[in-house]
């Protein structure tokens, strides 16, 4: 129990220090509260706007998770297909490399134009942002079967499918885990950019609205909720990634 609590205590201590620093800057510089509200004010705003924040956070979180799941699922399926089919590699791989060069975030306005202001455009942008790193990381891992294991598959006369399932996939799980970590970093960006480009709900929308009305404390409160969401997502991915067996 002690060991579990020490990192938590250390984290809390660091948080208290950061909050004190923040409050100190506000006091010493005397910036007006519509530029930089202190932590106390933001905390009060969090409390009083809790139902509003919760409602918008739910919209954002659902889009984030649905987009993430779709992107990861599609990425895994694509990588598996590329690994089994040389034809698919020939056709799809250049497209994948090209697509990675296009900043997917820049497609947000187009996606909003095509899919509207609702959830669909956010889900699709998250999906696209997640899809490429997951696909390429998993595919790389699938194709990088160490030579001795490749020899093993030959000597044991494995069919291509069994080679894939029993050797290539387990060998690629650590790579997939690093793809998932990247996805957990990019996905929250994507969902917020999607909301900034055009939305009537979500934490990104709430931030823009609060900013427009000079409710800086609400904007910061939304930011805090967003950060908490990002951390929770990262912890979730980390937990998934840890389950990947084999060397890290």
């Amino acid at each position: 129990m002690r060991r579990l609590n020490v990192p938590l205590l250390r984290g809390l201590l660091a948080l208290c220090f950061a909050l004190a620093l923040w409050q100190g800057v506000v006091w010493i510089s005397g910036v007006p509260r519509f530029i930089l509200p202190g932590p106390g004010r933001v905390g009060a705003s969090l409390w009083s706007n809790a139902p509003l924040l919760l409602e918008h956070a739910r919209f954002t979180a659902v889009n984030l998770l649905v987009g993430l799941a779709a992107g990861v699922g599609l990425g895994v399926v694509t990588a598996l297909n590329l690994a089994v089919s040389p034809g698919a590699r020939l056709l799809l791989r250049p497209m994948l490399i090209f697509a990675q060069a296009v900043p997917v975030f820049a497609l947000a306005p187009v996606l909003t134009l095509w899919l509207g202001y609702g959830a669909a455009s956010k889900i699709v942008i998250v999906m696209m942002v997640v899809y490429f790193p997951v696909t390429s990381a998993f595919f790389d891992g699938l194709m990088r079967l160490p030579a001795p294991l490749d020899d093993l598959a030959r000597m044991m006369r494995a069919t291509p499918l069994r080679r894939l399932v029993l050797l290539q996939v387990p060998n690629a799980l650590p790579s997939l885990a690093s793809g998932l970590r990247l996805a957990a970093v990019y996905a929250p960006f994507a969902v917020i950019i999607g909301e900034w480009v055009g939305s009537s709900r979500g934490l990104g929308y709430l931030m823009l609205m609060a900013n427009g009305r000079g409710q800086t404390d609400l904007m910061f409160a939304a930011l805090v909720v967003l950060a908490a969401q990002g951390l929770a997502l990262f912890a979730l991915m980390e937990a998934c990634a840890r389950r990947a067996p084999g060397p890290p």
């Binding site: 001795p148 067996p245 060397p247």
Partner: peptide
């Protein structure tokens, strides 16, 4: 062989 033929995950 000299090594590397074991599956690290199994």
């Amino acid at each position: 062989a000299q090594g590397g033929q074991l599956l690290p995950w199994a």
